[in-house]
C-alpha cells in the first residue's frame, strides 16, 4: 500500500532555495511518491506570469531529470487564502517542504507575523524546511 502519495514543495514570491528541491527529490524517491510544486505570488498576475513560469519550469526540469513525477502551479492573490484553497481542492499532501525564505521556519522556531507560520501548524501533515548544514 502506498503511504505517501504526494509531497508539496511550496515557494513564495519567486524565491526558490535549491536545497528544498534537492531534499524534495530525495524524500520523494525515498517514499516512492510524486512531487507537486506550488508557487504563491502576492497580488495579481499583471503580465509577469511568464517570468515565474520559466523559474518554475527550471525547478520542474531538475525534478524530471531525476526521474520523479512532478506537477506545478502558480497562484496569485492572498497567499494564505490561495494556499488553503489549494489544500481544500486537491488531494492532501503527505508532507510539505517549505522552499523559500529559510528564516521562516528554523530550529529555534517560526518567524512571527509570516503568513505561512500562522497556517503551517494547522495543516494535517509534517512541514519540513531544509537548510544546508555549515561545514
Amino acid at each position: 500500500m502506498v503511504e505517501l502519495k504526494k509531497i508539496l514543495i511550496l515557494f513564495e514570491d519567486g524565491k526558490i532555495r535549491k536545497e528544498s528541491i534537492a531534499y524534495g527529490i530525495e524524500l520523494g524517491r525515498r517514499m516512492d511518491c510524486s512531487l507537486c510544486v506550488l508557487m504563491l505570488m502576492e497580488g495579481t498576475e499583471k503580465g509577469n506570469s511568464s517570468i515565474w513560469e520559466s523559474v518554475l519550469n527550471g525547478a520542474i526540469k531538475t525534478i524530471d531529470d531525476e526521474g520523479i513525477g512532478a506537477e506545478c502551479g502558480i497562484r496569485y492573490g492572498d497567499k494564505t487564502s490561495e494556499f488553503l484553497k489549494f489544500l481544500a481542492v486537491g488531494p492532501y499532501p503527505s508532507a510539505i517542504v517549505w522552499g523559500s525564505n529559510a528564516g521562516v521556519i528554523t530550529e529555534r522556531g517560526r518567524k512571527p507575523g509570516h503568513w505561512f507560520t500562522r497556517v503551517a501548524e494547522n495543516v494535517g501533515c509534517p512541514v519540513v524546511s531544509p537548510t544546508i548544514k555549515k561545514k
Partner: peptide, 19 residues
C-alpha cells in the same frame, strides 16, 4: 542519504493536544 548529512531538515507538526 546525502540529505541527512548535508541538510538540516527542521520538521514541525500540528500540536495534537489542541487541534
Amino acid at each position: 542519504p546525502h540529505d541527512l548529512k548535508d541538510f538540516h531538515a527542521f520538521t514541525f507538526r500540528r500540536r495534537t493536544g489542541n487541534m
